[in-house]
Write a protein that binds this DNA or RNA. Structure first.
Lengths: 210, 210
DNA sequence: CAATTGTTTCGAGATATTCTGAAATATAAG
DNA sequence: CTTATATTTCAGAATATCTCGAAACAATTG
């Protein structure tokens, strides 16, 4: 019977893994990340293999993907040739990373398509298409416009979130309960840049697109 | 060769379908939804079968799921026994529905787990566990606390978004000086309540969990 | 109630995704 | 250079997910 500490960790790892699916990452990847999150010391590939009961290949693939995402980073121990991994402890930064990725994958492509669709229906009629119901075209265009403006707003809010950082968001949430905040001229040192992510070996990112 | 209108619709349907995966709904479901979104008239099962080239069973399943989600609703035509379906035209309301569902699936479960984990590690030691490193416990608790407060803030922001509605968010984004297109079509008062969803036949929702 | 029309369910098959295990590749040390 | 140690890759196996199609079910009509 594992002690309370281990029990809590295991529970967290399991649940975080299940949630992974909803966040666009697979279970194993999420579990690895969770394990790193609840463990302060850096862990090496063998640790993941044992604790999560996964193969070496699987561990390697998912560790790489996590590094590519920017959610964990490689570290080393003196006199040890193994690579160790460590999760970002800054939750806000973690969230930032995920948010950025999600926007790139969920909002940008559909925005592009909406724009493209608008072009198509806005192009001047050709002779062969004079039978298109102009009412239908107007209706479609209206919907596309609405969607476009909606997505733009959403994108802007993402930017906002990324820009303000955790403190800002907390404040924002609180102040919105009352009135609109007065255009923060004074936000503190908010992190916005990502830490430099260097791949050990140069390699065209393999974890693009699905 | 389809005309511009059809072309635009088809493009949108295809892309929206691809995006579906990221939003936790499968391709077909997303395509059905997209088709309804770009079509003003209500469509019936056969329309979906033809236009999307899917089987009747598939159409039925996914239509039901969409209705359960609250993203589309059933309607009828006078003197016609078929069921027709119609998408919510209010984009904000659509988003609201998705947001609500996502919070329920993505934030709440992990929040619960975090709380549970805290309880586990906070419980008084039993005799058999006196060897747990208290430093480790403290560290874990710290991380859990951070995560907890983060998730709570996020939940609050969701509530805010839901509460304020489209106009509020648009205004907010604008007032915060974010680049944002002028809103198309001024629509009436923002809807906030969901339309009553009645299943034709009583039936325990089959589309729970994944 | 039998016929007609429309909807839902569900097992089997098709697809897509993830994982394993072992071979190939890389890195460091002697 | 050779050996020892670590990491990555990838084809095939294992899983998970989605779709079809047909039978079962329900509602309406005559």
């Amino acid at each position: 019977m594992p002690n309370a500490l281990e029990q809590a960790k295991a529970l967290f790892v399991r649940r975080w893994g299940e949630m992974g699916g909803y966040w666009g990452i697979n279970r194993t990847m999420a579990e690895i990340h969770a394990l790193l999150f609840v463990t302060q010391e850096p862990l090496c590939t063998d640790d993941f293999m044992m604790q999560l009961k996964i193969s070496r290949g699987n561990a390697s693939m998912n560790l790489r993907a996590l590094v590519d995402w920017g959610l964990i980073r490689r570290t080393h121990k003196l006199g040890d040739r193994k690579e160790y991994f460590q999760a970002d402890t800054d939750i806000w930064h973690m969230f930032e990373t995920i948010l950025r990725e999600r926007r790139r994958r969920e909002i940008e492509p559909i925005l592009e398509t909406v724009e493209h669709c608008r072009e198509i229906v806005s192009a001047p009629k050709t002779a062969s298409q004079e039978d298109i119901d102009p009412e239908q075209v107007r209706a479609l265009r209206r919907r596309l416009d609405e969607l476009h403006s909606f997505l733009t707003t959403m994108g802007a809010l993402f930017d906002l979130a990324l820009h303000y950082g955790s403190d800002g968001m907390g404040k924002l949430a609180r102040s919105l309960g009352v009135a609109n905040e007065p255009r923060a001229a004074d936000r503190g040192p908010t992190r916005t840049e990502r830490p430099a992510r260097k791949s050990r070996r140069a390699k065209p990112s393999s974890t693009e697109r699905k």
